[in-house]
Amino acid sequence: MKDFLIDIAELLEEEEIKEEDILEDFEEWDSLTILSIIAFSNEKYGTALSTIEINDSKTVGGLKKLIAGKM
């Protein structure tokens, strides 16, 4: 998952993000971004995520842990 932060930053249209950043604080955080993360994670890591799981993961680091736990 070495490019994880770069990939998620691109989806969120941010220059740089940190693991402690709160997902819903990002300006681009909306239902389409959540769907983008679901599709991205499925294509890149072969994982099936739900909207609820992503919202529950709260932070960028939480999201990373969620995906890693399903790989």
Partner: peptide, 12 residues
Amino acid sequence: YIAPLKIVNEEK
């Protein structure tokens, strides 16, 4: 193929 525009790719 559920994918917002940001994530759409040519191969898929």
